[in-house]
Design a binder for these strands. Structure first.
Lengths: 214, 214
DNA sequence: AGTTTTTCCGAGTATATGCTCAGGTTAAGA
DNA sequence: TCTTAACCTGAGCATATACTCGGAAAAACT
């Protein structure tokens, strides 16, 4: 039976580990899951393999996770949460003294660095995990991207205070995300990241500047 | 045994059908494959299911395909080829009398329409098929996008003859592709396609116009 | 110490899926 | 018509994977 008809409870943990010992076990399972995903892909991931690589028994896996979907979901959630945190942290650093184009470049640079760091895992999550984009954390991250863009504008120098329509906001965030994704996951080695990030941030900034002020 | 260690011959057909009867069988298998992918996802796809839905025996499937990867690959190749043809066809229609922004809008509109038409299948192919982006047709399509952009520029009115760096070309194509992908596969219903396409083509055009002429 | 809760174990069962093969049927060629 | 090649069949074998369950060991609690 395919995994598609199951309830969405398969994405949640069965029970939270209470003692230090079990917390270490769960951590080992998650690390094992990441290792297997990077090396063998989602199709090569099985609960038995997770148990073996993590050095625990198969029974222990099912003690905490209802199935492999839940392990992957947990792993993805933590990565997505890390990214969301990064965005919020960067936003907190941005104030009225910041130059819009500089702030934009820093945002994109930090985001790119984080994605690049986890690129092997990210590739599998994005391209092979069927339920990734219906995870709450995914939607939260996408929303966060737009929020950060909007808030960042408000906080930078007054001369850039412009009114941004939802369409524009959407276009900017999807353009940026699409380019970052392509660079990290699909770009040929010949394409250096720095020039593209420079050009991208410059473009986004000029785009905003050219809009009617509010 | 995971499917990851196999040779890349799994992506090719075993033998070409010669008679009309067998060509119909293969066609039925491909249609069945598409149906199953749309309804059950890649994880729900099996050679047995393809045989059943197509109304042929499992033996016949293995007569023409070495495994399910080859069926999916064939299906994807035809969809990608259709897209590449569309781009080339549009390019042939573009001449020096065309306005750049109008031509750009038509390109994006046609591309979006095609993607939207196949969005259910496309979603599964993009997000669940591990080997999609290593298919020759995928690379060809990506290359075609950049070529069309570059050629389209050369063919439109002289005033737009500008020199476009590889970085810019890359940035424009990934931005456009990223936005189209997000719109077709992930956008909330509230986001209408037309305004976004209008804004996108306008943006790309203005971007080019603002560059130094060659 | 005694009791309860948490954690862990792993052989074993059920099931799904990939794929073969020996042989039958239909169409094309001579 | 006879021969050959193409095409089709589906029961069945091999394997892999999800998941259970009875019970043991360790930790926490009283």
């Amino acid at each position: 039976m395919a995994a598609d008809h199951r309830q969405h409870t398969v994405f949640k943990m069965k029970k939270e580990p209470r003692q230090a010992r079990s917390r270490a076990s769960v951590e080992a399972m998650l690390q094992a899951c990441a290792r297997i995903l990077e090396r063998r892909g989602y199709a090569g991931l099985s609960t038995n393999a997770v148990a073996e690589v993590a050095g625990v028994s198969i029974g222990s896996v099912y003690e905490y996770f209802p199935g492999k979907e839940a392990i992957v979901a947990r792993l993805a959630e933590s990565l997505l949460a890390e990214t969301t945190d990064l965005l919020q942290g960067r936003l907190a650093m941005t104030d009225q003294r910041s130059e819009l184009n500089v702030a934009m470049r820093h945002f994109l640079g930090a985001l790119h660095a984080l994605m690049h760091q986890h690129r092997r895992l990210l590739r599998v999550l994005v391209f092979q995990v069927p339920y990734l984009h219906q995870l709450p954390a995914t939607r939260k991250l996408q929303q966060e991207l737009q929020t950060v863009l909007q808030e960042g504008l408000k906080r930078t120098h007054e001369q850039y205070r412009v009114s941004v329509s939802p369409t524009t906001l959407y276009l900017m965030s999807t353009s940026a995300a699409g380019t970052l994704m392509h660079m990290v996951l699909m770009a040929p080695p010949s394409m250096g990241a720095e020039p593209v990030l420079d050009a991208l941030s410059q473009r986004l900034t000029q785009w905003l500047v050219s809009m009617p002020a509010s």
